[in-house]
Simulated assay, not measured.
Amino acid sequence: MSTLIRPPPANPANSKIENLLELTQLSDIDSDLFTNTRPLWHPPGARGIYGGAAIAQCLSAAQKTIPKDFTVHSMHCYFVLAGNSDIPIIYHVERVRSGKSFATRTVQARQRGKVIFTTTLSFVKQNSGGKQLVQHAVKMPEVPPPVEGMDDLDDRGAPSGPFQSQRIEIFNNDSPNPEDKKCRQWIKARGRISPEGGHEAHLSALAYMSDSYFVGTIARAHKLWRYSAFRKDNSKSSIDEETLKKLLVLDEEKLKRFKHVDEADLEHIRALRNGEAVEKPEIGMMVSLDHTIYFHNPRSFRADEWMMTEMETPWSDDGRGLVFQRIFTRHGTLIATCVQEGLVRLKQKEEAKL
């Protein structure tokens, strides 16, 4: 059973992402215990649930334990074990500190008694910085605007999912140095987030979307092949073989709108169509290890309006890689900075037996 309690009907007044991230408080056991109200998504080929769900629901649980005039400004997360979409998650909030200006919470996500995800969050009281402030913020780069009415596609070739995304051409994509490239996209929650959800719903939605394509920036910067057409072992790829077959018959326009396909993947798909051998290195395993979000203007944006994300990777080695991400409103306000380290291992060639 994927939820502890039978899920109620989706609230039509709420957006898709609100319904997806809804929590049930287990107040009969402990007022600081929560569980996922609805089943969580397991991306095709992934080791476990989509990491953004754990990030967002931990944030949502913590937000329910603080005063309304406090807002999250940072959260530091660790992915411990792959989450199983067939098992309910129990979120335990610990009230570490509740001060006059700052409050600290830790949240552990557990399945069958084991911690699968843990985070520490810090909240700050509104307007506690005083009237005179030290202010500066990086400017949003000039990029093509999102195309209204254009939607991304899932593996069935249809619009889906709780949020929309539109990829922008990679900056410096022809550079031989992966560290010089910047991967950009427009994102927003699908539909309209309800007034009842308040700023908390927008923050949880942002946290959910912040994990989209994050560690994958490393594969994109190196133009690595992530989809394997003929896997004879039990290793996981980013997508299953049936989905790859569907990709091979899609036209170019639909391929460019497919959620999990970037320019490097397009090159490989074209090669497969033409019966050409793909000689480039292939990702064997790519999973997130940790995830940090700094919220800069937590009450001055809407997650259901277009936001621009820019990701770059300053380093990768020894089976790991680091990615930085900035998130802006459509009008250029910096609303979040994120950092993620991930496990990035290539599929190793079999050594010739002597």
Rank of each mutant, 00 (worst) to 15 (best):
residue 251 D to R: 03
residue 148 E to G: 06
residue 149 G to I: 03
residue 256 K to E: 08
residue 292 T to N: 11
residue 340 Q to F: 08
residue 61 A to S: 10
residue 300 S to A: 12
residue 4 L to W: 01
residue 223 K to N: 12
residue 209 M to Y: 08
residue 229 A to H: 10
residue 148 E to A: 05
residue 51 G to N: 00
residue 155 D to H: 13
residue 286 M to E: 04
residue 8 P to S: 13
residue 201 A to N: 00
residue 202 H to C: 04
residue 204 S to M: 03
residue 336 A to H: 01
residue 234 N to I: 09
residue 164 Q to H: 05
residue 82 A to M: 00
residue 325 Q to K: 09
residue 309 T to A: 08
residue 312 E to V: 11
residue 78 Y to F: 14
residue 353 K to R: 00
residue 130 G to F: 05
residue 279 E to P: 03
residue 81 L to N: 12
residue 29 I to T: 13
residue 267 E to W: 11
residue 192 R to D: 01
residue 224 L to D: 05
residue 315 W to H: 14
residue 173 N to D: 15
residue 210 S to E: 00
residue 33 L to H: 03
residue 25 Q to N: 15
residue 207 A to F: 01
residue 172 N to G: 11
residue 237 S to A: 14
residue 141 P to V: 05
residue 168 I to K: 04
residue 96 V to R: 06
residue 328 F to C: 00
residue 98 S to T: 00
residue 336 A to Q: 01
residue 118 T to C: 10
residue 305 E to G: 08
residue 312 E to S: 15
residue 62 A to P: 01
residue 35 T to P: 04
residue 340 Q to Y: 08
residue 286 M to C: 14
residue 160 S to E: 06
residue 76 H to M: 06
residue 174 D to G: 08
residue 272 L to R: 14
residue 344 V to D: 02
residue 16 K to L: 08
residue 306 W to I: 08
residue 342 G to D: 07
residue 84 N to W: 03
residue 10 A to K: 12
residue 194 S to L: 05
residue 3 T to M: 05
residue 219 A to G: 15
residue 71 T to M: 13
residue 238 S to M: 10
residue 192 R to C: 01
residue 5 I to E: 04
residue 93 V to H: 10
residue 31 S to M: 07
residue 34 F to E: 00
residue 194 S to K: 00
residue 5 I to F: 13
residue 283 I to A: 06
residue 98 S to V: 07
residue 287 V to E: 11
residue 192 R to E: 07
residue 58 C to N: 10
residue 247 L to D: 02
residue 11 N to K: 10
residue 291 H to K: 06
residue 335 I to N: 01
residue 32 D to Q: 11
residue 38 R to D: 02
residue 72 V to K: 06
residue 199 H to A: 10
residue 351 E to Y: 01
residue 140 M to V: 09
residue 169 E to L: 09
residue 62 A to N: 05
residue 128 S to M: 13
residue 160 S to N: 13
residue 125 K to I: 08
residue 268 H to Y: 14
residue 344 V to A: 02
residue 302 R to E: 07
residue 167 R to E: 09
residue 305 E to N: 00
residue 233 D to V: 08
residue 37 T to P: 02
residue 98 S to N: 12
residue 29 I to Q: 14
residue 259 K to N: 14
